[in-house]
Nucleic acid binder design. Structure first.
Lengths: 180, 180
DNA sequence: ACTCCTTTGTACCGATCGGTACAACGAGGC
DNA sequence: GCCTCGTTGTACCGATCGGTACAAAGGAGT
């Protein structure tokens, strides 16, 4: 049943590049190598079903790489550093886009509003919790700013076609978050 | 010739809400009240022509409200504060989205890559220039961070449906930018 | 009133959209 | 060999896409 996982990964890339509306069935069949028959067999609900699967996959990454460490690691500083490292890896050091952000900005937003809001609040709150645990002041404000800066950096990296923006921002955030 | 300006403003809102791909001709005719005949008379090049006009309008706002003050105002601090205030007004305190950002994230990017990159670099560089003029260290880094935080804040405000995020970020930025 | 030219509505174009129907296919059990 | 059933390619659906053609309408100048 790994074929489905492969398909989801490929579809995610298509969504990332073209957006939800722009990702036509023909683009998806081309990228996955799967015909419509297989596609609708794997995802009976069509495009929306595919998007759900993709978002579920992202939730999985987030829970594993961000949420769990931030909540469970007894060493809060290490957890924050690890979160930043995982984020850098996931977004390919700024060469990859945040699909949730892309969905949030186009007409797709209404369709997945709950999931989108949940993703960002979970991130912010988990980070704020870790900051509070290691005794940093203004945990909420700093966490919110970090999440928003990560998203802004991804956007700017993409807009300028300059991934270095993302790297610089992550370094700055590590210093800002950990400073007493 | 103000009709064209009205049409451009209406079309901009459609693009903001639906994205470039999502903004169908029928959505545009509905919002503008103009039939296809008028639309293609005003914008012979079709949707792409409309997008160009919209982007030109944004460039106009940017040049007037951001670039010119940042470059010309002898009081650099006042210029930065004014830029922040104009930005807050333009984006309706976080209730409005940045169209350039939306274009940067979806499949439209390639079509307008130059314009998109130009918009953000101009903003960053103008801000860095003002910072340097008032003798702040790390002008480039702080300017880049401010631009990216504005975009991230707009995104997060939209994603969480909570405009307050934008207001908080602008306040934080004013303090960060002006601090010696 | 007549003309000329801009502006507009509407019918239509081929292409493509997301989605469905279904027949051909293939591997495993018997 | 045959049957079964999950899987797949393909033809097709109505709707809508962006765009074009063109004739009717409108308005200014004379």
């Amino acid at each position: 049943m790994t074929e489905r996982a492969d398909a989801v990964a490929a579809i995610a890339e298509v969504f990332r590049e073209l957006g939800f509306e722009g990702a036509s069935l023909s683009a998806i069949t081309a990228r996955t190598g799967l015909g419509k028959g297989s596609l609708y067999h794997l995802f009976p609900g069509g495009k929306e079903d595919m998007a759900e699967a993709v978002l579920a996959g992202i939730d999985g990454w987030f829970a594993r790489a961000v949420f769990a460490p931030l909540r469970d690691d007894p060493d809060g500083e290490a957890a924050i550093r690890r979160m930043l490292r995982e984020t850098d890896a996931y977004f390919r050091s700024g060469r990859r886009i945040c699909l949730i952000a892309a969905f949030a900005l186009d007409g797709t937003r209404d369709r997945f509003a709950g999931r989108i809001a949940n993703y960002f609040t979970a991130w912010r709150d988990a980070l704020a919790g870790a900051l509070r645990r290691i005794g940093r002041a203004e945990a909420d404000e700093r966490a919110e700013h970090a999440v928003l800066a990560i998203q802004g950096a991804l956007l700017l990296s993409r807009a300028l076609d300059d991934p270095a923006v993302f790297g610089r921002t992550l370094e700055r955030l590590e210093a800002d978050l950990l400073r007493r």
